[in-house]
């Protein structure tokens, strides 16, 4: 555990999920759901560091990556649903970028 890098993000930070589609470039194993690519959420908690599943799936050496619980407002994700409802998802740090602080996604 001691060799893990310090988490880049803290609870409350606004983050954007990378709008990246590695599945279009070749075989891969990704734990970031399609429906969150490019979406903006808020870090809820740091969950620790785990071997990168994208490497584990292909039996490659798997460096540990910090995993976060990230909270998204549910209605803007799907353009439906009840305001106030949310989706809470585990996302690895290399899928996250800093996002503008107060920006609320338009419903």
């Amino acid at each position: 555990m001691s060799d893990d890098a310090a988490p880049r993000f803290s609870p409350g930070d606004r983050v954007q999920v990378r709008d990246d589609w590695p599945e279009r470039r070749g075989p891969c194993h990704i734990r970031t759901p399609h429906y969150l690519r490019g979406r903006t959420g808020t870090v809820e908690r740091v969950l620790g560091a785990f071997p990168n599943p994208e490497d584990l799936a292909f039996a490659r050496p798997a460096p540990r990556r910090v995993l976060y619980h990230v909270l998204f407002d549910q209605p803007p994700l799907w353009r439906e649903g009840e305001p106030g409802d949310q989706v809470l998802v585990e996302i690895f740090e290399h899928w996250l970028e800093p996002a503008a602080a107060p920006a609320k996604e338009a419903a």
């Binding site: 734990r31 969950l47 799907w78 009840e82 409802d85």
Partner: peptide, 30 residues
């Protein structure tokens, strides 16, 4: 993830007014 309240209603689960739903998508190591 898309229509949690409709899915819950099919179980007969209707939340009291003022209760927000948090759908937890278990995507990784926890």
């Amino acid at each position: 993830v898309r229509e949690p309240r409709a899915v819950l209603a099919e179980w007969g689960t209707v939340l009291p007014p003022g209760v927000e739903v948090r759908v937890v998508d278990s995507t990784a190591d926890y």
